Simulated scan of single mutants.
Amino acid sequence: MNVTQVKFEINGKAVDVGVEARTTLADCIRDDLHQTGTHVGCEHGVCGACTVLVNGEAVRSCLMLAVQAQGEKVVTVEGLSGDDLTPLQATFRKHHALQCGFCTPGFITTAHALLTNEPDADEDRIRDVLSGNLCRCTGYVPIVEAVLEARSHYGRKATS
């Protein structure tokens, strides 16, 4: 087994981890760094459950190799909050925008990236960006409603 040392930041903490060249960032995050909020669903970049932030951009961690994270800043759903729910997570709870919860970390990180970069995103833009994440439980309406309400916490007044 050929192991490569990779140094990057995850959730504000510097890490130095040995991985095989073919290890995905998702597997490294879950198996080596024990950040289990990042879920692995399809392993083909289709479902969005594994979405994390790399330098602020939403990235499918099942499609990115861990070695590609060298020197980068990675944030998982765990890194978005401290002891309390973030306003975005709270709106998901308020709007019942989760049921089984499997897809939720991917939706949260994707929505966070969108609202950080586009706090004035309208409903059509939100739907477009979130269309890359799959959910089998909620029917998407509560997810969109939650993100619409959360905009006010990213520098926008909440209007529907």
Rank of each mutant, 00 (worst) to 15 (best):
P105H: 07
D120C: 11
C135E: 02
R136Y: 11
F107W: 12
S131L: 02
I126S: 01
G106Q: 10
C135S: 04
N133C: 10
C103Y: 12
P142W: 13
T104L: 14
E123S: 10
V129I: 15
T109Q: 13
E118K: 14
S131A: 12
Y140F: 14
T116C: 12
D124C: 07
N133L: 09
D124Q: 15
L134H: 02
T109A: 15
Q99A: 12
E118Y: 11
I108R: 05
A121N: 05
C103N: 07
T110H: 11
R136H: 14
A121H: 10
D122E: 12
D124T: 11
G106M: 12
C137Q: 06
R125L: 12
L130T: 06
V129Y: 08
T109R: 14
R136A: 06
D120G: 15
G132N: 09
E118L: 03
F102C: 01
V129N: 04
C103Q: 08
I126R: 03
F102A: 00
C135L: 08
T109D: 11
D122H: 12
R136V: 04
F102Q: 05
H112S: 06
C100K: 13
L134Q: 02
G132Y: 10
R127D: 01
L134M: 06
R136L: 10
C137K: 09
P105S: 05
D124N: 15
I108H: 08
L130D: 07
I108E: 00
G139V: 08
L115I: 04
T109I: 10
L134W: 04
E145K: 12
V144Q: 04
T104S: 15
D122R: 13
V141A: 15
R127M: 02
L115S: 01
H112W: 15
A111K: 06
R125V: 13
D120W: 11
G101Q: 07
I143F: 07
A113G: 04
G106N: 08
V141H: 14
I143P: 04
C100D: 06
P105V: 01
L134T: 01
V141M: 13
Y140V: 01
D120Q: 15
T138R: 08
E118T: 14
L115Q: 04
C135Q: 03
T116P: 01
A111D: 01
V141C: 02
N117K: 13
F107Q: 10
E123C: 09
N117L: 00
Y140N: 01
Y140K: 02
D124W: 13
P142I: 12
R136K: 10
E145S: 06
A111Y: 09
L115A: 04
A113Q: 11
A113V: 11
Y140L: 02
C137P: 05
V144E: 01
E123Q: 13
I126W: 00
T116A: 13
G106V: 12
A113I: 08
C100M: 09
A111P: 03
L115G: 00
P142K: 13
S131F: 01
F102K: 05
A111H: 03
P142L: 09
D122F: 12
T109C: 15
L114F: 06
Y140M: 01
V141Q: 15
E123T: 09
L114Q: 03
L130W: 11
F102I: 08
L114T: 06
R125I: 06
L134S: 03
C103M: 07
E123V: 08
I143V: 07
V141S: 12
T110N: 10
A111G: 05
C135G: 07
